[in-house]
Simulated scan of single mutants.
Amino acid sequence: MTYLGEGWDSTAELVGGRWVERRPRRAEIGPQLVRESVVMPWLAPLLPLPVPVPVVISDDPLVVRHELVPGAEVTSLYAVQGRQLGEFLRALHAVPVAEAAERGVGPMTLPVERFRAEVQVPGGDELLAEIGGLPADTLVHGDLGPEHVLGRDGVLTGVIDFGDLHIGDAAIDLAWALHSTPPEFVDALVAAYGVTDELRRRALIWHQLGPWHEVLYGNDIGDPRVAAGGLEGVRDRLAIGVSQGPTD
């Protein structure tokens, strides 16, 4: 077994060079991993890139296992990967919401009151007010960033970590892709997906909200450095909105 690392929710080890085993780091993550084992076998054939399809191999302690998705975290992004990701998200967002709900996928509940109490910055209340008016009518990955998009030899080879899969706003999956990637990648993604001005507007809102979760996580684990880093990100991303003008 080879230790692969850990995220906020689970730890991962590579077994036999082929299988990834994941274990929850907190009790509340257990049901999330079990849900993935129900949803992903149904969802995977509907998507144009490989994704994890976990199965439960132990109930106590809970362990899920899936075949290793090929590739590594992408460090350089070009038009071809933008087109691939646009096609992937278009397919994911076209999946019937009712069928996902039948398999236990529901809406995401944002910790808005904690945000208000623990992240007090100029412009914060206005951003939280924007969040309250966003749609929740699409099956979304919910945590799409560079660490969850894999590639090799200039092309994407898979998308991983569907623990935050939920029924929400399609724009949440465009936040990183539109606001933290090179222009040629963005242009190709926009063309492949069919990104509208309204989706761009909402994607910026979700991009600005991202570091707020890091502040709360830092507080939860008692690490002021993590919380401080999140707070710095909050300020930086709110400044993006100011420089681009009002989001409405």
Rank of each mutant, 00 (worst) to 15 (best):
P24W: 15
P135C: 12
T138V: 15
R26I: 10
G154K: 03
A227N: 02
V121H: 09
N219A: 09
L174G: 01
Y78I: 01
R22H: 11
L46W: 10
D137V: 13
T11H: 03
G142M: 01
L85E: 08
S58G: 10
V119H: 14
M40E: 12
L77N: 00
I160A: 09
L144V: 12
L92M: 08
P61G: 14
R23M: 08
T2Y: 02
L156M: 08
D125K: 02
E184M: 05
G229I: 04
W8R: 11
T157G: 06
P135N: 09
Q244D: 14
E13C: 08
F162K: 01
A188T: 03
L127N: 00
P122E: 13
I167Q: 06
E147Y: 15
L47E: 11
I172G: 00
I167T: 11
A129T: 14
V149R: 05
R18M: 04
L77P: 00
W8N: 09
D248W: 05
I172P: 00
A79P: 02
H207K: 06
E126F: 00
V105R: 01
A44L: 13
V63C: 08
E67S: 09
Y193F: 08
H213C: 07
P182K: 05
L49K: 01
S243W: 12
D223I: 04
I205A: 05
P24E: 10
I172C: 06
G142A: 07
L209G: 04
D236R: 07
R237D: 05
R225I: 11
P54H: 05
L110P: 09
R114L: 13
F185R: 00
R114V: 02
A12E: 02
V55N: 11
G133T: 11
L110R: 10
T181H: 12
I29E: 14
G218H: 04
D137G: 14
V121P: 08
D153M: 06
D173M: 03
T2I: 13
L216D: 08
A91S: 12
F88W: 15
W42Q: 04
Q81R: 05
L85Q: 05
L199C: 07
P24L: 15
V20N: 09
G86K: 02
A94D: 09
T11N: 02
V39R: 02
P224A: 08
V34I: 13
A94N: 04
D248F: 02
L134Q: 09
E214V: 14
A72H: 05
S180G: 11
L92H: 04
L139E: 01
R23V: 11
P52D: 09
A91V: 06
G123C: 04
V38A: 12
V119A: 14
G145T: 03
R114T: 07
W176E: 01
L14H: 04
P31V: 13
D125W: 01
L231Q: 05
D220W: 15
W19T: 15
G7R: 13
I172K: 02
V121N: 10
P54L: 11
R114Q: 13
P146G: 05
S180K: 08
G86T: 03
R202H: 08
V105N: 06
A94S: 14
V38G: 08
T247W: 12
V34M: 06
G245S: 13
A175R: 00
H213V: 10
R116C: 14
L46T: 12
A129P: 06
D60Y: 07
T109V: 14
A129S: 15
V97W: 03
R35G: 13
L139Q: 03
T247R: 15
L199K: 07
H166W: 04
D59K: 11
A117E: 15
A27W: 15
W176M: 02
